[in-house]
């Protein structure tokens, strides 16, 4: 597929120690029953996992639990077609839905000792590592926007939001970063 959006892959913000925009990525939303999710994990070389609100990953790919029958599959931007092919072969004949949302949302990395504090200015979840440990991921809200939040490390989060919400989310986060 021709990437018509590449012309408008504008940088939403200049990177700061707190917040930086991640490069474009392959994003596929897969929905199906357990055997579909297991077959997809096998095909992509990811561990099978049904644990709610947890991400599993390999060197190049990740599967994020979005719901009991829903996973967000992440990879590098140039691997989208390859992932699509692997999944279509592995899931042939099984009822499922596979949607490419790669251009629909943008990813950011929020990191540093004050990352959780800055996120909590707009997100009501308890981000203490005891209740939101590394590898936990979930859809939630940030101020008025829906986001996907994934704790990728002790003080590092990956935040994904709809492209149109990105300026809103990042401007509030940048403000929080200055204040916190």
């Amino acid at each position: 597929m021709v990437d018509l959006s590449s012309a408008r892959q504008q940088q939403v913000l200049a990177p700061t120690p707190l917040l930086k925009q991640l490069p474009p990525a392959a994003r596929l939303v897969l929905r199906g029953r357990s055997q579909v999710l297991a077959a997809a994990a096998d095909a992509l070389g990811l561990p099978r996992s049904e644990t709610p609100c947890r991400a599993v990953r390999s060197d190049v790919r990740a599967a994020l639990w979005l719901g009991p029958d829903e996973r967000l599959l992440l990879g590098s931007a140039d691997a989208a077609a390859e992932m699509h092919g692997l999944l279509q072969r592995a899931l042939a004949g099984m009822a499922h839905s596979l949607v490419d949302i790669g251009h629909g949302q943008v990813g950011f990395e929020v990191s540093g000792a004050r990352a959780a504090l800055a996120l909590n200015t707009g997100c009501p979840l308890d981000l203490d590592p005891a209740s939101f440990p590394p590898d936990m991921c979930t859809r939630t809200v940030f101020a008025k926007a829906q986001i996907l939040l994934w704790r990728t490390g002790a003080t590092t989060f990956r935040l994904e939001t709809a492209r149109s919400f990105a300026p809103y989310v990042t401007q509030i986060l940048a403000l929080a970063g200055r204040e916190s």
Partner: peptide, 9 residues
């Protein structure tokens, strides 16, 4: 109830 901004269920 629906967990709209969560698992969607």
């Amino acid at each position: 109830w629906r967990h709209t901004h969560g698992c969607g269920r």
